[in-house]
Design a binder for these strands. Structure first.
Lengths: 196, 196
DNA sequence: GTCTATACGTGGATAGAC
DNA sequence: GTCTATCCACGTATAGAC
C-alpha cells in the first residue's frame, strides 16, 4: 500500500478520504443519482456547503470513489502475484484477491465502479480506463502463463473477460452468511476452469 | 410469443408498448434516474402529462421494461430448448439465446434489468424475481442434464451463476462491428466450459 | 474548514380543458 | 387520449460570515 500515488489519490488528507469512503457506501447502496450531496456531507457530519470545499463537483467524488476501488485492488493483486512463484499459485491469487476485494475490503467502491459507469462524464473516463486496463493487464499476464502450462484453455483473452464477468456477478448473489466463505468460493470458481 | 400473459404484460395496446420500448432505450442509454418523464413521453411524441394516462408512476414504466426483457428472453429460450433434442444442443441454446437477446433483440430492456435493479421499489421486486427465477430454472435444468452426460463439470449451481455472470458482462465489451459476431461468441464461450 | 442562506433549475405528478 | 398549465419538492452549487 503506497503512501502516495498519482491519479488524484494521494493517501489524502483524511477529511477527503473520509468523504470518499462514505460516498462509496452511499453510492453503492442508493445509487449515485439518488444520493444527494447533502446525504454525502451529512454522513461525515458536514453540511452540504462544506463538502464543496473538498470537491468541486459531485462527479469529482464519484471519480475518486472509483479510482480508489480499482487502484487498491490492483495493488493488492500485484503484491499477491509477486509473493508466489508457480503459475498455478498466481492463477489462484487472481480469484482470491478479486473476490476478497469485491466482497470485502473494497466492496462499495468497486460496486460503484461496476454499476455507475454511465454517470461518469466523457472527460473523466480515460483516466479511469487507464486504471482498469492496468488491472486487467495483470490478469492477462497470469492467464497466459497458466495457459502455457496447460492449466486453462488457451483462449485467454476471452477467458479473461468471461472470468471477470463471473467474478463481478458474484456481488449479486453471494451472501457472507451463506454456506461458502469468500475463499472457498474462490477455490470453487477456480476449479470450474482448471484443466488439471 | 404469446398474445397475452400475466404480470402486467399483455401484448398491450400499442401506445403503452411503444412507451415501454422507448423507455428501455432511454433508461439503458442515460440511466433510469437521469431519464425524465418528459424525455420518455417526447420519445413517442407525447407530452409528459399524457404519459401519466398510460402509467401511474415513473417506476411503473421501469418495472414494465424489466418484465418485458426477461419474459421475452424466457420465451425464446423455452422455444429453443424444446426444438432440439440432445443435451449438447440444449446447452448450446443457452448461450445462443442469451447472447442474441442481450446483445440484440432485447438488449435495452435486459440491460435495464441488469443495471437498474436498485431503483426498483421493494414492493415491485418480488414480481420481477419470480420472472428471473423462471428463466434461471430453465438454465439449471439444462446444465444438470449436460453434467449428467459429462459435458460440463458437475458443480452446476455455481456453474449457472458463473456462466450467467460471464454472459451478462459481455455487454460491457462486445461490439457488433468487432471480429466476432454474436453466434461465434456464443460458440467460443461454450467451448470454454465444455469438457468434451 | 465549516456554517447558514439562498439562487436557480428541474424533477414527478396532478387538474381540467379539449 | 392528449394537451397545457401548474404545484411543489428537491437537486447542485455559490456567497459570504464566522
Amino acid at each position: 500500500m503506497s503512501v502516495k500515488d498519482k491519479h488524484g489519490l494521494p493517501e489524502e488528507n483524511s477529511r477527503r478520504m473520509e468523504l470518499i469512503r462514505a460516498a462509496a457506501r452511499l453510492f453503492r447502496d442508493q445509487g449515485y443519482e439518488r444520493t444527494t450531496v447533502r446525504d454525502t456531507g451529512n454522513a461525515v457530519g458536514l453540511q452540504s456547503g462544506s463538502l464543496f470545499y473538498h470537491f468541486r463537483t459531485k462527479e469529482e467524488i464519484l471519480v475518486a470513489v472509483m479510482a480508489l476501488g480499482i487502484t487498491a485492488t490492483t495493488e493488492q493483486l500485484a503484491e499477491a502475484i509477486a509473493s508466489v512463484h508457480t503459475p498455478r499459485e498466481k492463477l489462484a491469487a487472481l480469484f482470491h484477491v478479486h473476490l476478497n476485494s469485491l466482497l470485502g475490503d473494497n466492496q462499495h467502491a468497486l460496486e460503484v465502479m461496476l454499476y455507475e459507469w454511465r454517470s461518469v462524464s466523457d472527460a473523466a473516463k480515460p483516466g479511469l480506463i487507464v486504471l482498469r486496463d492496468r488491472y486487467e493487464a495483470l490478469w492477462q499476464t497470469v492467464l497466459d502463463e497458466a495457459a502455457a502450462d496447460g492449466l486453462v484453455k488457451p483462449d485467454t483473452r476471452l477467458l479473461r473477460r468471461t472470468l471477470l464477468g463471473s467474478l463481478h456477478w458474484s456481488v449479486q448473489w453471494f451472501r457472507s452468511n451463506g454456506e461458502l466463505n469468500v475463499n472457498e468460493l474462490a477455490d470453487r470458481m477456480l476449479a470450474l476452469v482448471l484443466l488439471k
